[in-house]
């Protein structure tokens, strides 16, 4: 299941960029508290409407693309493994799209909000969320966004998407969210 813009991109350039970002294996599970799902549910993309779309229907570098559900730029979340700050391979393509957009729109700014699951200390989780936001910031920087366009901050465990206790929920809360100018 792939986002459609890959067909619009140069695959060669993509692979170069992916290599530049690095794609390390996820850090080993350190929590004796729970077993972790490696495929968070939230990455399921709504592929059905996308299949019918003409590639010319939107300009991937336009600001309208940010909110266009056909554009990968409308996807704003990167999910992380437990106690890990490594951007997983499955999110590299999404970061490429946002990095290109920021490079093409140098006046746009982005606030990257890192998040953590609820287990443990609030302040330590704030620092973990910061590492996730930083990982996204560094990747976007390598992909062409300028340092001055980006601010990486953390919301720690304070703004969970999901409030149940359990791995399925926690995996949705270990997240980096990308907000553009006007959205924060």
């Amino acid at each position: 299941m792939r986002a459609p813009f890959i067909s619009l991109s140069s695959l060669a350039a993509l692979s170069v960029l992916l290599a530049a970002c690095g794609s390390q294996p996820p850090a080993p599970e350190q929590s004796p508290a729970g077993v972790e799902s490696r495929s968070p549910g939230a990455i399921k993309v709504d592929t059905a409407p996308i299949a019918q779309v003409q590639p010319e229907a939107f300009d991937p570098a336009s600001i309208a693309a940010l909110k266009d559900p056909r554009s990968p730029l409308s996807k704003r979340s990167i999910y992380f493994d437990y106690d890990s700050y490594v951007v997983k391979d499955e999110f590299q393509a999404l970061l490429v799209a946002h990095g290109k957009f920021l490079a093409a729109n140098p006046k746009m700014k982005m606030l990257i909000q890192g998040n953590a699951d609820e287990r443990g200390s609030r302040e330590y989780n704030l620092a973990l969320g910061q590492k996730r936001a930083d990982a996204v910031r560094k990747a976007l920087n390598l992909l062409g966004a300028k340092e001055t366009q980006l601010e990486a901050v953390s919301l720690g465990e304070e703004k969970p998407m999901c409030t149940e206790s359990g791995e399925e929920c926690w995996s949705k809360n270990r997240r980096g969210d990308m907000l553009y100018s006007g959205e924060f």
Binding site: Q130, A152, S154
Partner: peptide, 25 residues
């Protein structure tokens, strides 16, 4: 970046804080 974890010095004049302005926390 993030600004957090304030702690007062015993004389009340200073705060220890955690900042990410130069990178990690």
């Amino acid at each position: 970046g993030s600004n957090s974890a304030p702690a007062w010095s015993p004389d009340g004049k200073q705060l220890a804080v955690v900042l990410t302005k130069d990178g990690s926390s």
